[in-house]
Each structure stands twice: as structure tokens, then as C-alpha cells.
């Protein structure tokens, strides 16, 4: 219970990351860099200082509190010099307007469980539980495993959201305490995958096959991002791969253990505003979300491959 790692959000009343009313714990750090990422604050494994200029009231307290000269005032306007910041966090304490905030803090398993168990009554009533997300939760293997194990002691439903780009042993360690796995497959073409996410896809696909053989319930997900994977041909490739996973499952578990389903998610731009606060550049500005018609035609293409698919 003393194992600690960096958590950037604990989202209570989370309804879209598994069954029932849930709490989603977001672990910081990801192995991929998908350019449209909607949780960019989860990419870097360490805490980060976020600056929201629209909240700043130019009181100048941060300038006085910072030992590293990361804040300056020019003609009544505040400037944050990220390159000087050493994450002392002192400015955050004196920033009453919440223009400066620390994203992520090291928490122990016990601290996470304390927060998670606050909503136990809601999980019990609704068949909900806890989802580990991120970032990539399997990168914090021991921390993630201990949280899931503690949840199981309390008989909570458990789920993980993974990008799959981790050593197999890291995922395998979580399996005994995980009821539901939500895993992204973003592209079957290796070079296109690499361009879009910064990583090849061979380990992801091999992990997906091993997960399928494990008999766990799996939801395979594809975020539909125009210019990356929004053609019927590309979705049919992924859906065919999902059908292969189902075949693997059936041969490994005759009695048909947990199901494997496929979900398509539409790319959206709601995360664009997060990037500047982290000092990152948003590279999906020029991409428009796919239309409803587009999503429906891709869904139908996936279904024609003979798998259970839905839009989320």
C-alpha cells in the first residue's frame, strides 16, 4: 500500500469507462504520442506545471515565490518561463486564482484507495467500480497491480484502459485483478501507426492476441481520426483483426469466456485548449471531427466483418 506513483486525476462519477458508476484513476506517463491525444497532461510521467493565462489576475505573487525566476511581470502582464521552472510548486500555493496548477502528484496506493472507496455505495448499487486509465496505466505496473488488487479485496469491478504499447509482462501482471480491458488499436499499417502515434504497432498487436487468449472481456477501440484511419478500408482491416482475436479466444476457451467487442470513437477537439497550458503544440487543429454519417458508414463496414461493433 506504500507503492507510489504519479496520478493526475481521480474522476468520480465516471460513466463511460466501463459498467455502472465508476471512479477513473488517471496514471501519468504514456509510451505513445498520438498527435490528437485528448489527455496530453497524461503523457509525461512526472508532474508538470500548467499555466492558464485567462485566469491570471496579474497579482505578481508567483514572481516573489519562485526561487528559479520562472515568472516575470512585464507592464502588468505575467509571463511564465517554462524553461526555468524546476517544479518547486511554490507558485501554485500562492496563486489564488488557480492560473498556475500542478498537474499530477505522487500518491500511494493507500491514498488512491481512500479516494476510490469514498464512492463504494454508488459502485455497489450500480455494478460499477474502478477504471485505471492515463496515460498508460500498465507503465506503472506495480502501482497499477496493487490498486487493482486492493479493489478486488473490496469486491469492486475493475477495468483498465491501455494503449497496449508496453511489455507483455506488465499487462500480464494486471490480468488476475482485472475484469475488463479496453484497448486501442489505431492502425494495422505499421508505418502509418508510427507516424500517427510515434510508435510501431507490432507489440500492440501481439499483446492484443495474448490478451484475447487470456479469456478476459475486451473492448477494442479505435478513435476515428480523419487523415489517420477514417477510410472503410482501414477500419475493415482493424475489424478483421478483431475477428481474428475472437477466433483466438474461441480456440483457447471452448466455453466462450468473456466477450470481445469493438467500439469506434469519433475524434473531437475538446482537448485543444489543454495543450498551450502545458507548453505543448496542438497538431490536430486542421482536422475536423468525422461526421455522424461517416461514423455510421465506418460502423457498418466493421459490422460487415461479422463482429459486434458499436459507436461510443
Amino acid at each position: 500500500m506504500n507503492t507510489a506513483d504519479v496520478v493526475f486525476n481521480i474522476q468520480r462519477f465516471s460513466l463511460h469507462d466501463g459498467p455502472g458508476i465508476r471512479t477513473t484513476v488517471f496514471l501519468k506517463g504514456c509510451s505513445m504520442r498520438c498527435f490528437w491525444c485528448h489527455n496530453p497532461e497524461g503523457q509525461h510521467p512526472e508532474p508538470e506545471l500548467r499555466y492558464f493565462p485567462e485566469r491570471c489576475i496579474a497579482c505578481g505573487q508567483c514572481v516573489l515565490s519562485c526561487p528559479n525566476h520562472a515568472h516575470e511581470m512585464h507592464d502588468g502582464t505575467h509571463a511564465f518561463l517554462r524553461e526555468n521552472c524546476e517544479l518547486s510548486g511554490l507558485c501554485v500555493e500562492t496563486c489564488f486564482s488557480r492560473a498556475l496548477q500542478m498537474e499530477g502528484r505522487a500518491m500511494t496506493v493507500a491514498q488512491v484507495m481512500d479516494e476510490v472507496l469514498s464512492d463504494k455505495a454508488f459502485y455497489e448499487s450500480s455494478g460499477g467500480g474502478v477504471t485505471l486509465s492515463g496515460g498508460e496505466p500498465a507503465l506503472s505496473k506495480d502501482f497499477a497491480r496493487e490498486i487493482l488488487e486492493a479493489c478486488k479485496v473490496h469486491r469492486l469491478h475493475t477495468a483498465i484502459e491501455t494503449c497496449g504499447e508496453v511489455p507483455w509482462a506488465s499487462l500480464e501482471a494486471l490480468l488476475p485483478f482485472t475484469d475488463l480491458i479496453m484497448m486501442d488499436i489505431k492502425h494495422l499499417d505499421e508505418s502509418k501507426h508510427q507516424r500517427a502515434t510515434g510508435q510501431p504497432n507490432d507489440r500492440i498487436l501481439s499483446n492484443a492476441r495474448r490478451l484475447a487468449s487470456s479469456g478476459k472481456t475486451i473492448i477494442v477501440r479505435t478513435p476515428i481520426v480523419p487523415s489517420v484511419n477514417d477510410t472503410e478500408e482501414e477500419i475493415i482491416q482493424i475489424a478483421t483483426f478483431v475477428r481474428e482475436l475472437i477466433t483466438l479466444r474461441t480456440s483457447a476457451h471452448q466455453n466462450g469466456n468473456g466477450e470481445i467487442r469493438y467500439e469506434l470513437l469519433a475524434f473531437h477537439k475538446l482537448a485543444a485548449g489543454k495543450y498551450p497550458s502545458l507548453g505543448l503544440e496542438y497538431k490536430a487543429h486542421d482536422i475536423e471531427p468525422p461526421t455522424k454519417e461517416k461514423m455510421t458508414s465506418l460502423l457498418n463496414a466493421a459490422r460487415r466483418c461479422g463482429i459486434e461493433a458499436s459507436l461510443r
Binding site: 458508476i21 455505495a121 454508488f122 448499487s125
Partner: peptide, 17 residues
């Protein structure tokens, strides 16, 4: 249906408290 169901669980849990 799922949304309505979750809402009902929210209400029930509140009354339990």
C-alpha cells in the same frame, strides 16, 4: 438506457445515505 439506469442508482444511493 444506461444513462437512465445510472441516474436511478445515483438517487437510490443518496436515499440509502
Amino acid at each position: 438506457e444506461k444513462g437512465i439506469e445510472n441516474l436511478s442508482h445515483l438517487v437510490r444511493s443518496y436515499f440509502t445515505m
